[in-house]
């Protein structure tokens, strides 16, 4: 049995614009989209460009648009798509560098804007900062983010406003605000509580739908709004 992989191709050195190209890939049970891409690279067309590394849904390299949804190619079973046609496009509204490889610089720049590192207020103890199980529970899921950019690619607001921080960076902001060891809550809220941050979100829930780690960025953004509302009321930011 075969499946047709219809892949958006773009080679900046020769193509005026992107176009689809079809490849026949032999199907066997358990075949993932990433394995299909490797089959094409290794057997049919060695010019195909795509990123990948762990093939186990933890490195975040292979987020792309597959049959109408943003997914990690490695964890997407072809059988789950219920189709003989597998249409693969790169992440949206990021510049295509070649084929399925996009320029993620705007995405990572947004991440850096929220100061993504722990900033404790207390002096470092000789051993660990203690943290109760309940406190640690507040950063559950948020710390699972693999920065695959599926959420960013799916976000229509990010597509119209490149200055918007986007779902991932906002999740990262909440991750540090919720961490009992961090001491910069108000400063962090000040970074995100503006019209390039949490107020730009239209609660469209695409990011919630596509996150391969079930993180729910929309909910994170709503929580940030609640917190910043309180801070604004009390004049802290």
């Amino acid at each position: 049995m075969e499946k047709t992989f219809r892949i958006l191709r773009y080679d900046p050195e020769k193509d005026q614009e992107a176009h689809f190209q079809d490849y026949k890939v032999p199907y066997e049970k358990g075949l993932t989209v990433l394995e299909g891409l490797y089959y094409i690279l290794e057997n049919l067309d060695a010019t195909l460009a795509f990123r990948s590394s762990c093939r186990a849904a933890i490195c975040g390299s292979c987020a792309m648009h597959i049959n109408g949804q943003y997914r990690l190619a490695c964890r997407t079973q072809v059988s789950a798509l219920n189709s003989d046609l597998i249409t693969v496009r790169p992440l949206s509204h990021l510049t295509i560098l070649k084929d399925l490889v996009v320029d993620l610089k705007p995405f990572f720049d947004n991440y850096k804007k929220i100061e993504p590192y722990l900033q404790p207020e207390k002096a470092e103890p000789a051993k660990e900062f203690t943290q109760s199980e309940k406190e640690r529970g507040k950063i559950d899921k948020l710390v699972d983010c693999i920065l695959c950019a599926a959420c960013y690619g799916s976000c229509p607001v990010a597509s119209t406003n490149p200055k918007y921080l986007g779902p991932q960076a906002l999740v990262a902001a909440l991750r540090f605000i919720n961490d009992s060891r961090d001491g910069k809550t108000q400063e962090r809220l000040a970074i995100v509580a503006n019209d390039e941050g949490i107020f730009r979100c239209h609660t469209i829930f695409n990011c919630q739908q596509v996150c391969p780690k079930d993180i729910d960025p929309t909910n994170a953004i709503l929580k940030l709004r609640g917190k910043s509302f309180m801070s604004k009321l009390t004049g802290k930011i």
Binding site: Y117, L118, P120, E124, A126, K127, E128, F129, T130, Q131, S132, E133, E135, R136, I139, V143, F176, D179, R181, D182
Partner: peptide, 20 residues
């Protein structure tokens, strides 16, 4: 090295007493 990583924000799981 582990304490240092913890101070740098590594989200280790915790025992009931709050230690790593």
């Amino acid at each position: 090295r582990i304490y240092e990583l913890e101070h740098w924000g590594c989200p280790f799981s915790r025992f009931k007493d709050g230690t790593i």
